Structures are given as C-alpha cells and as structure tokens.
Simulated scan of single mutants.
Amino acid sequence: MPSYEEVLKRIAAKRSVKAATLARWVDLSPAAFYKAIERGEIEAVKIGRTRLIPAHESCRLLGIKQEDLAA
C-alpha cells in the first residue's frame, strides 16, 4: 500500500490513484468508497475491474489544492 507521501507525489504528477488506496487516506472503508463511486459522489474511471480516481478528484477528496503540490 503506497504511503501518503507517495499518493501526493502521484497526484502532483497528475496521475490517477487506485480507489482502494485513496479510500484508506480519506478514512472510508473500501466498500463505502466503492458505493460512493457507484452513487456518482466520487468521480472514477473504470479500467477492467480497477477503479482509478483522477488527480483533481483525489485533491478534492483529500481537501488539498493540486497547485499547492507542485510548489
């Protein structure tokens, strides 16, 4: 499981984050996180069985600004 710093580096590089990884850092169970995706509350891209959360959505969920990560 990637550390919080690794997740932030990925977001700063404008790369998507796996849903299960991000769920850990927003204090939701993976099941609750996936249900929120299905309800449309969280933007996600589905590739096969994997759900990826775009960088801008990851920032929203973590309460950070993407611009602040690049600085």
Score class of each variant (00 low, 15 high):
64 I>P: 11
48 G>E: 07
30 P>S: 10
10 R>K: 14
48 G>C: 14
17 V>T: 04
6 E>T: 08
26 V>E: 06
56 H>W: 03
37 I>V: 07
57 E>S: 08
51 R>K: 15
31 A>G: 09
39 R>T: 02
25 W>E: 15
19 A>F: 06
39 R>A: 13
23 A>K: 11
57 E>M: 10
11 I>T: 00
55 A>L: 11
16 S>M: 02
57 E>G: 08
11 I>S: 01
70 A>H: 09
68 D>F: 11
60 R>M: 12
56 H>P: 14
44 A>D: 01
5 E>M: 04
66 Q>S: 01
26 V>M: 10
40 G>A: 09
54 P>H: 03
47 I>K: 15
9 K>D: 12
42 I>E: 07
19 A>L: 08
45 V>H: 12
56 H>Y: 08
2 P>L: 12
39 R>W: 07
30 P>A: 03
50 T>L: 05
57 E>F: 14
16 S>D: 13
4 Y>H: 03
29 S>Q: 10
68 D>T: 13
17 V>F: 07
41 E>Y: 12
34 Y>S: 01
62 L>Q: 10
51 R>W: 10
40 G>H: 15
24 R>W: 10
8 L>A: 00
27 D>A: 12
68 D>Q: 13
5 E>T: 06
60 R>Q: 15
62 L>D: 08
26 V>P: 09
60 R>T: 14
43 E>D: 07
46 K>F: 06
53 I>S: 02
36 A>P: 00
24 R>N: 12
21 T>S: 12
46 K>P: 01
62 L>P: 05
